[in-house]
């Protein structure tokens, strides 16, 4: 167990380094720079700006400086587009917001998706299954950016039940969380149904029946554990899907999270923000993947962490 964690951390370093390096050179080699859009800026000012941010240095120099700052001081550098602010400050404010949204959306997705999938599997080919499957299918098929305005229109602008923008109270969270979590919930429902269907005809379920267990006890004690394995292994990609989804949700609901800044920064060539968000995303995803592996090994005793 501890060996596994150590190994995972060791594996995290080269992958992150590779990501940082690739992104670093990609963004800088791309035509255009952070100050290109501002036509009005005179040449001297531009040069001054470039000098200030060391953008005129040779690339390898910039790269080494960036790495040194990052590794030695955890410093991601200044934002080009928000003068006077550093990327660290920006992340300190926006990361918690994105995390809140992500965790809440995933909780919502599990709370909705798993029961739907279980119902579908147990009542296979009945109206309940058809209903649960159709709901899930619609959830998978409607893009978040269509869902979001629909929710806003119905619950915010027609019924006036809920606020439609910003991130202040729990009531502000309801619509964004539903919007971010529903497609994930739909995916989880389909996976749960599939995983459970694999098992409902398994021999050990027949044994459980032969023991005299009721259907409820069979589901809880014998089916759920194995049936949820596909869901568990989906959690890694699922979280990364949520992150991507949060780009849309944060933009539409005007939530000051990381995703919104990222999109902006990418189009504006604000290199340091792009790098910072990439590093945070990468670390998050890899940590989550490691946690998912641990959960998987705990759920399935035949999988040992040593072999992962």
């Amino acid at each position: 167990m501890s060996r596994f964690i150590v190994r995972r951390i060791l594996a995290l370093v080269p992958t992150l380094w590779l990501t940082v390096t690739l992104v670093f050179f990609f963004v800088r080699l791309a035509p255009g720079g952070p100050f290109d859009g501002e036509r009005a800026v005179p040449r001297e000012v531009l040069l001054a700006l470039e000098a200030k941010y060391h953008l005129g240095d040779p690339l390898y120099r910039q790269y080494l400086d960036f790495l040194a700052d990052l590794v030695l001081r955890g410093d991601l550098g200044p934002c080009f587009k928000y003068p006077g602010r550093t990327v660290n400050e920006l992340l300190r404010v926006s990361l918690p917001v994105s995390l809140q949204l992500g965790v809440m959306a995933m909780t919502f997705a599990l709370a909705v998706g798993v029961p739907l999938g279980v119902i579908g599997a147990l009542r296979q080919n009945t109206w309940a299954d058809t209903l649960a499957t159709s709901v899930a299918m619609i959830g998978v098929s409607v893009p978040r950016f269509v869902l979001a305005p629909l929710l806003v229109m119905v619950f915010g602008l027609q019924l006036y039940w809920l606020p439609v923008a910003r991130w202040e109270s729990w009531r502000h969270a309801i619509l964004p969380v539903i919007c971010a979590g529903l497609p994930t919930a739909a995916y989880i429902a389909r996976l749960t149904r599939g995983g459970m269907l694999e098992l409902v005809r398994a021999d050990f379920v027949r044994t459980a029946r032969a023991k005299g267990l009721g259907e409820g006890a069979i589901v809880v004690r014998h089916l759920l554990r194995g049936g949820l394995l596909p869901v568990v292994s989906y959690l890694g990609p699922g979280f990364s899907g949520l992150l991507v989804g949060s780009l849309v949700v944060e933009t539409i609901f005007n939530i000051p999270g990381m995703g919104r800044y990222f999109v902006e920064a990418a189009t504006n060539r604000d290199y340091n923000i792009v790098m910072g968000v990439t590093i945070v995303y990468g670390t998050l995803l890899m940590t989550l993947n490691a946690l998912v592996d641990i959960a998987y090994a705990w759920l399935d005793p035949r999988v040992s962490l040593e072999e992962l």
Partner: peptide
């Protein structure tokens, strides 16, 4: 269900698949 596993019990051909692979023997 009150009869199954209580008054009449059953064992199966392949004990590997007939036991739940995700649960320890005790439970």
């Amino acid at each position: 269900r009150k009869v199954r596993g209580n008054r009449i019990a059953m064992i199966f051909q392949d004990p590997m698949t007939a036991l739940n692979p995700y649960l320890a023997v005790g439970p």
